[in-house]
Design a protein around this nucleic acid. Structure first.
Ligand SMILES: [Mg+2]
Ligand SMILES: [Mg+2]
Length: 226
RNA sequence: ACAU
DNA sequence: GAATGT
């Protein structure tokens, strides 16, 4: 029996480590007998070989009941919010931590990043979208923002990032981005410069450590767009 | 090669 | 397939 996470959309799936998405209700709008089914097998037998059949999986009975009333037109081909299974992380992982990640649509942006409290699965900060920025710049700014959050508010003692590059930049208090300084990039560079200045002028005691993606699956702050 |  | 980085 899976427990529904009350903050869907910020946990991730990795076979063998994390549990798959909860999808326990299947709505059949157009099939042999329209209604709600508990398994894919049942659902399948309602729709296979049925012309123009319409069905879809949902996480909760409530969602499914609403979707059945809505009709398939409102849900077909759309991404409804799916609840993810709650996750048991390995003991090795520091639970009193903020996990961060970036999402970068193109090589130079748009870029956004966020930090999430691992234990509470709560979004602590979200920044962007920045018109220009690289993956590594976003990973870097995310870590610095998490450090500053902890320096100011306490509550956490560890930051996880999956970025070898950004962890290094933070450690060295330097940003070796290849993104040229130009009129088009001056905004993001100003933000980087301010972050570096804070790092160099302030002390902090939280640890910044590597999220071991190959062992633990995608970092829970991941945007799930890959 | 490693991490994104 | 491409780019950002050590
Ligand atoms: Mg990342
Ligand atoms: Mg990611």
């Amino acid at each position: 029996m899976y427990m529904a996470c009350d903050n869907p959309g910020i946990t991730n799936i990795r076979k063998g480590i994390l549990v798959p998405m909860i999808q326990k209700c299947y709505v059949v709008w157009v099939g042999r007998t329209p209604g709600i089914y508990e398994t894919w097998d049942e659902c399948k037998s309602e729709v296979v070989g049925f012309p123009e059949a319409r069905c879809k999986g949902f996480s909760t009975l409530e969602q499914a009941e609403k979707a059945l009333k809505d009709g398939w037109e409102k849900h077909w081909g759309k991404k409804d919010q799916k609840y993810k299974a709650d996750i048991k992380y390995p003991d090795e992982i520091q639970k009193n931590s903020i996990v961060v990640d970036v999402s970068c649509s193109g090589p130079n942006g748009p870029m956004e990043y966020r930090g999430i409290g691992l234990k509470e699965k709560r979004i602590i900060f979200e920044r962007g979208s920045f018109r220009v920025g690289t993956n590594n710049i976003g990973e870097f700014l995310a870590i610095v923002e998490a450090i500053r959050h902890i320096a100011k508010n306490g509550h956490y003692d560890t930051i996880y990032s999956d970025s070898q590059v950004a962890i290094g930049w933070v450690r060295n208090k330097t940003c070796k981005t290849t993104l040229e300084r130009s009129e088009a990039t001056k905004e993001i560079h100003a933000i980087i410069d301010e972050a570096l200045e804070w790092l160099r002028k302030n002390k902090y005691s939280c640890k910044v450590i590597k999220w071991k993606t190959t062992q633990w699956g995608e970092i829970p702050a991941d945007y799930g767009r890959k």
